[in-house]
Simulated assay, not measured.
Amino acid sequence: MKKNILTAAAVFVFGFVNAQEAKFGVKAGADFASMHGKFAGNSYSESETGFYVGGFVDVAVSDKFHVQPELLYVSVKDLDQIQIPVLAKFGVAEKFNVLAGPNFGFILDAGEGAKSFNLGLDLGASYDLTGNLSLDAKYNYGLTNLIDGGNSNFSTKLSGLFVGLGYKF
């Protein structure tokens, strides 16, 4: 299932990039992650700070609308994952953009009884400091219960606030 989703996303992205104006770039920053859930009706929440680093493609569909797929390595304490957000980027003012889209996460060190695929929804903003440098902030809301076989009384979800810089070549 994971390979099919990843393959479909890659075919879509690379096909789309060939047909449009695209700029490649790199980004890095901090991830303020939180894990929250329920065990037998009791809620819990745990927070940690980590980092992310990766690359992106900014594909101009029009002056005000871009598609921005990213490939990020995210590390927070004992949890490493690869995230593939596919973001719609809307220009709302000069140098200011709103970001939204799905995020496909692949947990690299998922333990026994834990799922390794984490579907999320990203919502955020970016501000172009220069023609090539931007400041980004987005929240990734985890939708997947990461406990294998878990239910509404037995769940764990992973979310995070990402703040960092991006550089377009």
Rank of each mutant, 00 (worst) to 15 (best):
P69W: 03
L119N: 07
G105I: 03
N18L: 12
P85G: 08
G55M: 03
F162H: 04
V59G: 13
V163C: 09
I5M: 13
K89T: 06
G164V: 01
G29N: 11
S75A: 15
A28F: 01
L71V: 15
T144M: 05
G150S: 09
L135I: 10
S75H: 08
F162G: 00
F104C: 09
A93W: 10
L108H: 08
L133S: 08
K27W: 07
H66Y: 11
K3A: 09
Q83G: 11
F104D: 02
N4I: 15
V92M: 05
V92Y: 10
N153A: 09
L6V: 07
G160T: 00
G25D: 09
G142W: 00
L108P: 04
V76W: 00
M35N: 10
G105F: 07
P85E: 00
F51G: 03
A88I: 09
L87F: 01
F154V: 07
I5K: 07
F24D: 06
N97K: 11
G105T: 01
T144K: 03
N153T: 07
Q83N: 14
L165W: 00
G37K: 00
K38N: 15
M1C: 08
K3E: 08
L133C: 13
I82K: 02
A125F: 14
S47I: 11
N103Q: 14
D31V: 14
Y52I: 01
K77R: 07
L123P: 01
A33I: 04
V57Y: 04
G160C: 01
L123Q: 03
G50E: 00
E21R: 14
K38D: 14
L135N: 00
D136R: 08
G160K: 00
Y73H: 06
F24R: 11
F56C: 05
I147F: 01
G124S: 06
S62K: 10
F162K: 01
D78I: 01
T49W: 02
V67K: 09
D58A: 15
I84H: 05
S155W: 02
F154Y: 13
Q81E: 15
L129Y: 07
E112L: 11
V86R: 05
E21I: 15
V74N: 00
F24W: 10
F39G: 05
A8Q: 08
L108W: 10
F169Q: 10
H36G: 13
L79I: 10
A137P: 01
G164E: 01
N132P: 04
K157T: 07
L146V: 03
K157I: 04
S34Q: 13
V61W: 07
D80L: 02
N132C: 12
I84D: 03
V17A: 15
F106W: 09
V13G: 11
L108C: 12
V57E: 03
